[in-house]
């Protein structure tokens, strides 16, 4: 890495920290919440990209893992009194009743629990390929949701949980996002990561080179599930209320949109598009409200926002299949070269 690039990276990180500090002090609650959501969606996008983009396994079970993480973290962090208020239909099961742990171990446990379930699901399901895998993981995610809805004494069923402590703040969410990104970058550039990519490119070729398909697929899936659980935990403690309906397929779809737009198999692409999608979804809210153009008032149609969003996804898939970054990563060299309008040196930039 060139010295210039290191300095540029450090400056960028410093600016980001300054911005976060500024945002925490000066932004209103709504904007802070959107910034938090950006970081959480980054975590979720990165974990899904590890499975779908880097390992090439089209799995759609993310909402289920998020639900596990969110419920575990919420149940472990809620104060005893709030739990009693929540569980008025049926009393909560014994060990959870008086159990309260600090946020960090709760979050970690949420991730670990999601990873265990991910392992149990992945081990049989990853024998499948392509759309079969998609449907099977979607089915598992739906089963998780149905179990949560029916386990009244553990999860409070369809009523959901209210009054979860709002522990997630900008430092928590961005800290976790950075840890996730660094972990996944290190993983992708390790021998495991190369095995993942080999499996994505051609399973049969990878297998004949001595890569264990089962081991690597399950590994990517379990790690992805872990971070999905952590992301879910952060989300639950950001919103303060969760219920099983939140974790429908639609949530998985949102994350899928992020990784498709960012580029399947690009970490920087995922980060950029997590911000674009989250902020875009909020910004498009004006479509649901009435617009006053001065001379004419266009009545708002609720739901139009989602139509526009679905159309955007279709356009991206139909015309810009590789998303923002494709499988490339952001680099200062490319940016500077582009700014200078100088063509890249033939054969690469090295």
């Amino acid at each position: 890495m060139k010295k210039r690039n290191i300095i540029l990276t450090l400056v960028a990180v410093l600016l980001a920290l300054l911005f976060l500090w500024f945002a925490k002090e000066n932004f209103d609650a709504y904007k802070v919440r959107i910034l938090n959501l950006c970081a959480i969606y980054t975590i979720l996008g990165l974990s899904m990209n590890l499975i779908n983009g880097f390992t090439g396994q089209f799995a759609l079970g993310h909402a289920g893992f998020m639900a596990i993480g969110a419920y575990t973290t919420a149940l472990l962090t809620m104060p005893v009194a709030v739990k009693q208020q929540n569980f008025f239909l049926a009393p909560i099961v014994e060990p959870l009743k008086d159990l309260t742990v600090p946020f960090f171990p709760a979050l970690l446990l949420g991730g670990i629990f999601a990873a265990v379930v991910g392992f149990l699901i992945g081990a049989p399901a990853l024998r499948l390929k392509g759309d079969y895998l998609a449907i099977a993981t979607l089915g598992f995610s739906e089963i998780i949701r149905i179990v949560i809805t029916n386990a009244q004494r553990v999860t409070n069923g369809a009523l959901g949980l209210k009054g979860i402590p709002n522990t997630t703040n900008l430092w928590w969410s961005y800290g976790t996002a950075v840890v996730t990104a660094v972990f996944i970058i290190l993983l992708i550039n390790s021998s495991y990561g190369r095995a993942f990519k080999a499996i994505r490119e051609d399973e049969i070729a990878a297998e004949s080179m001595g890569i264990s398909l089962f081991k690597h697929k399950v590994m990517a899936f379990t790690i992805g599930a872990f971070f999905a659980g952590v992301g879910g935990g952060l989300l639950g403690n950001l919103l303060g209320t969760i219920d099983p309906l939140m974790f429908r397929f639609f949530l998985t779809f949102n994350i899928l949109l992020i990784i498709v737009l960012g580029g399947m198999g690009s970490i920087t692409g995922t980060i950029i598009s997590a911000f674009i999608v989250t902020i875009g979804l909020e910004w498009l809210r004006f479509l649901d409200q009435s617009i006053n153009l001065g001379f004419v008032v266009i009545p708002g149609i609720s739901g139009l926002r989602m139509v526009v969003f679905s159309v955007l996804l279709m356009i991206v898939v139909l015309f810009f299949r590789h998303g923002i970054m494709g499988t490339n990563e952001f680099s200062w060299d490319k940016l500077i070269n582009r700014l200078n309008k100088r063509p890249l040196v033939k054969g690469g930039t090295k």
Binding site: F58, A134, L256, G303, L304, M306, S310, L313
Partner: peptide, 22 residues
Amino acid sequence: PRISILISAIGASFLLENLAIV
């Protein structure tokens, strides 16, 4: 690639649902 077609299929499904809501 098949993965693009799958995503497009999911997109079409969501478009129809949201259109129906609107």
